[in-house]
């Protein structure tokens, strides 16, 4: 029952770690060019959802269709190569490797020529990746590392970009930079699924939102229709019966 134009449709996704059910029966859909935010309190299952989409978390049920292809049983590397990119929580750069090497890791499917072209385009957007290309990524500040991580994910021109808490642990002024980058990506029509703790900022940038509580979908709708009151109710697990 995938809608026309849906780049990713999730039906009945469940994620369990042993007896702990992180995500239960989640239905979700993202259309091309959309910016969708996934909100929820700590432990609501947001990161588990992202990881399950790319096959890094154990899926105990459900079906995932990405760009018209069933990716439910595909291994992670095949899913990534089919056009999904994940910027994991905590950035997860390879701290011993140089910035340039980190970027190359995002371009496994590209030829050297393509890599150089994409890299140069990205260096204009993320000057840090040019200025500090040959330094160890671990020596960069948190905000700089986040920029490199996003640049790495964008290198392969993904059909859908998954961002897991990009502002986590960053100074407020750096958080502004990161949200400016996300806004710029939105202007460039990159399809984004964003997981964020900073609900207010995320909603201001997103087209639509999904709210999880204890692994269940509590609320979904246009970003503008969700305000502090509805959000608070959803966080507390009070299902909206409208």
């Amino acid at each position: 029952m995938a809608t026309q134009g849906a780049i990713l449709s999730i039906a009945g996704l469940s994620v369990s770690y042993g007896t702990v059910h992180a995500v239960r029966q989640l239905d979700m859909e993202i259309s091309e060019g959309e910016t969708v935010v996934l909100l929820g309190a700590n432990g609501a299952g947001k990161s588990s959802t992202l990881n399950a989409i790319v096959g890094l978390a154990p899926r105990s049920g459900g079906r995932l269709v990405f760009a018209g292809e069933d990716i439910t049983r595909k291994p992670t590397e095949a899913i990534i190569r089919s056009g999904l990119a994940l910027v994991p929580e905590g950035r997860r750069l390879f701290s011993n490797m140089t910035v340039r090497e980190n970027l190359r890791l995002g371009a496994a499917a590209l030829s050297t020529v393509e890599f150089d072209r994409e890299r140069q385009a990205l260096e204009d957007m993320f000057p840090i990746t040019r200025r500090r290309a040959h330094e160890q990524a671990g020596l960069l500040s948190g905000g700089e590392q986040q920029q490199v991580a996003i640049a790495r994910a964008l290198l392969a021109r993904p059909k859908l970009l998954l961002l897991d808490e990009p502002s986590l642990g960053l100074a407020p002024i750096i958080v502004n930079t990161i949200f400016e980058i996300i806004a710029e990506l939105k202007r460039r029509k990159v399809t984004i699924l964003l997981v964020e703790q900073n609900a207010e900022r995320a909603l201001s940038i997103a087209d639509r939102a999904y709210v999880l509580a204890q692994g269940r979908l509590e609320l979904s709708g246009a970003a503008g229709s969700i305000n502090a009151t509805t959000l608070e109710k959803a966080y507390l697990g009070e299902r909206e019966h409208a």
Binding site: L56, T76, R81, R92, F94, M97, E101, L105
Partner: peptide, 17 residues
């Protein structure tokens, strides 16, 4: 490069494809 990355951090390596 990818293999060395996975040796450092298998999860992030796989997430990079």
């Amino acid at each position: 490069l990818g293999l060395r990355a996975c040796a450092d951090d298998p999860i992030a390596g796989q997430a990079a494809g």
